[in-house]
Design a protein around this nucleic acid. Structure first.
Length: 590
RNA sequence: GGUCCCGUAGCUCAGCUGGAUAGAGCGGCAGCCUUCUAAGCUGUAGGUCAUUGGUUCGAAUCCAAUCGGGAUCACCA
């Protein structure tokens, strides 16, 4: 916010001095480097050409004017080379502190009347969730919360891939090998149960292919003609034709998976306003295809298939309807986009989808644009990179997939062990302890996955696991608990008239606190929770340095004590609200 | 082959809408608990920002080429 204010004031000052109206793009305002005196720096180089002067002179004139005209903002300035360093008036920072130290809505923008949909998670019903899904879920949930804080009316949705050959594979394997076993009879979580049969299918398939190739068939042919694969393909046809036994088996196995997902979702904190199922949407989109033909955006080939030519946009020709009139992936997505718009009428729509689908998402956006659909411009792809293991990619066939439930369990177990070793929670009862372990374990996991720029692929090392020190969720949680501990002993609320001279650590903290709303806005604009995650770490780190350097409760004077209590209070508020936007709870004690 | 993304300390990552001597965390080394929670703090070592060229007052940041890694270009989803 100060950054914006400084730009505004500089524009006013320059207009007054030179009679030229500049925009905030004509010059830069940055935080001053620590080795120089000052808090914010105006970079003068870009201005000297238009203003026909030299940096030294410009700096003096501008600095003089700013300090003279806005004494409540600036107390002094200095010029080093082409940099005008401004020192912010502590009174300004104190005013911000006083206005917000008890403000639970700090940093949040008022409702802006815009509705925005965030679609994320998109699980398949043939296997349990894994580490990659966790990144997706945490990103989706977090960006939804960040958008809420920016004043959007957010609708969280999920599209479940509940049909297709992969589900049939689990079904075939269950029919062949289960002897009527169920999740109940085996006391397995439903999604894991079904996932186990998916694995069984692949094992059986592999064996059959080996037998066929041993008999002299070439591999490609064997993979097509393996009996179990033929069965699965037949089952998909039966499913599409609505054969009652198949539909009923499909419903039964999916219900097992959903009850498993429910447990996981509840644990990691997912709440969708609306869940779409592909079995209900896979036939959609044909009307839109007709619209595309009418508008000559699409064209029909002799065999009856429908295409769009995206070569002018640097892409390829893309099929949108098969020659037999059935939908493909993109057709469904076009149809689903229309349905979502019909149902919710949102202004924007964010798809949290892995970067392996960048091309697909680009095609979807282009098609919607060319059809001039009203929601076309509002489609955004929050693209994220894969989570890889030090050994490379996760592969279900090689058993190197990190299971979501296992990982969460493990994180909580580590949190428990760690907490018990520290022995600080003797006054907690059993329920509180369980809550605390979950909070810390999940906090570590969520923070770990959210602190990295979404678009980059990231490496997860299960051996070294996730640390509880340094740039981690527990570090921030701990800082919060520390502050709360102080505030239980002494709370802010006395009068604060003369705060004395601000110590460096105090001022640095205030300057950082002051940028919170800007951070939230940036995170939303860039669809990037990592911006917020890194800010919260920096804030916690700064607070800890301040905490180590000064006493709060036993401050030198009553005024200092009050100031520091308010400072601690506002930092706690930000840590709490910021972490919540990352989907992470923050404890009162730990 | 076309398109897109990535390459910064031993490891994991910030910084990238161009600004001053490139920052954190982990790990290493050396310190700090009779005072508000040591899941913390302080100090220290560690870099040819993949390479080369260009743009300019100034490049980790922008442009081009090259080298490395990845994704994608299905009448699969």
């Amino acid at each position: 916010m100060l950054n914006t204010i400084i730009r505004e004031k500089a524009i006013i000052a320059l207009n007054k001095i030179y009679g030229i109206t500049l925009s905030d793009k004509d010059f830069q305002v940055n935080p001053t480097k620590p080795e120089f005196e000052g808090d914010y720096t105006i970079v003068l180089f870009s201005l000297i050409k238009t203003l026909k002067t030299n940096p030294e002179h410009l700096g003096n004139v501008l600095g003089e004017e700013l300090v003279k005209e806005f004494p409540d903002l600036f107390v002094s300035y200095n010029i080093i080379k082409g940099f005008l360093n401004l020192t912010i008036n502590p009174a300004y920072l104190i005013r911000v502190l006083n206005a917000h130290y008890q403000d639970p809505c700090l940093g949040k923008a008022p409702m802006n009347g815009q509705k925005i949909m965030v679609e994320y998670s998109s699980p398949n019903t043939n296997k349990p969730l894994h580490l990659g899904h966790l990144r997706n879920n945490f990103l989706g949930r977090s960006i939804a919360e960040i958008l809420k804080a920016n004043g959007y009316d957010v609708v969280k949705t999920c599209i479940v891939n509940d049909r297709g050959i992969h589900i049939c594979k689990s079904m075939i394997a269950w029919l062949r090998y289960a002897n009527g076993a169920t999740p109940e009879s085996t006391t397995m979580k439903g999604d894991h149960f079904v996932g186990a049969y998916y694995v069984k299918f692949n094992d059986a398939f592999k064996t059959e292919v080996e037998q066929l190739t041993a008999g002299g068939m070439d591999k490609a042919k064997a993979e097509k003609e393996a009996p179990i694969m033929l069965e699965a393909q037949q089952m998909l046809l039966d499913w599409e034709n609505g054969v009652p036994e198949i539909i009923s088996l499909w419903k039964k196995m999916n219900s097992w998976v959903y009850s498993g997902f429910d447990v996981t979702y509840k644990r990691i904190g997912s709440d969708f306003v609306k869940t779409y199922y592909e079995s209900e949407t896979y036939l959609l989109g044909k009307e839109t295809v007709q619209l595309g033909l009418d508008k000559n955006v699409f064209y029909k080939k002799d065999d009856g298939s429908v295409w769009i030519d995206l070569t002018p946009d640097g892409l390829d020709e893309k099929l949108v309807l098969r020659k037999d009139g059935t939908s493909v992936y993109i057709t469904q997505d076009i149809g689903l986009a229309q349905r979502k718009y019909d149902e919710f009428g949102m202004d924007q729509s964010i798809y949290v989808v892995g970067d392996e689908q960048n091309y697909h998402m680009k095609v979807l956006q282009l098609i919607c644009q060319k059809l001039a659909l009203p929601y076309a411009a509002g489609i955004h792809h929050l693209s994220y990179g894969m989570v890889e293991l030090p050994t490379g990619k996760m592969k279900s066939r090689e058993g190197t997939v990190v299971d979501a439930d296992d990982l969460v369990d493990e994180m909580i177990a580590i949190a428990k062990e760690h907490t018990q070793n520290l022995g600080k929670v003797k006054d907690f009862d059993e329920t509180e302890l369980v809550q605390l372990y979950e909070m810390i374990g999940l906090g570590a996991l969520k923070y770990f996955l959210l602190r990295v720029d979404p678009k980059k692929k990231m490496i997860f090392n299960p051996e070294e696991s996730i640390d509880f020190h340094g740039s981690t969720g527990p570090f921030i949680q701990y800082t919060h608990a520390r502050i709360k501990s102080i505030l239980r002993k002494a709370s802010a609320g006395q009068s604060l008239s003369d705060y004395g001279i601000l110590e460096k650590q105090e001022k640095d903290l205030l300057l950082l606190v002051e940028t919170y709303d800007q951070v939230i806005k940036q995170a939303a604009d860039a669809l990037d929770p990592s911006t917020l995650a890194n800010y919260l770490f920096q804030l916690a780190q700064n607070f800890n340095s301040f905490y180590a350097a000064f006493s709060i409760v036993n401050a030198e004077t009553i005024e200092k004590r009050e100031l520091r209590l308010r400072l601690a209070s506002i930092v706690a508020t930000i840590l709490d609200s910021g972490m919540k936007m990352l989907g992470i709870q923050v404890p009162e004690k730990m």
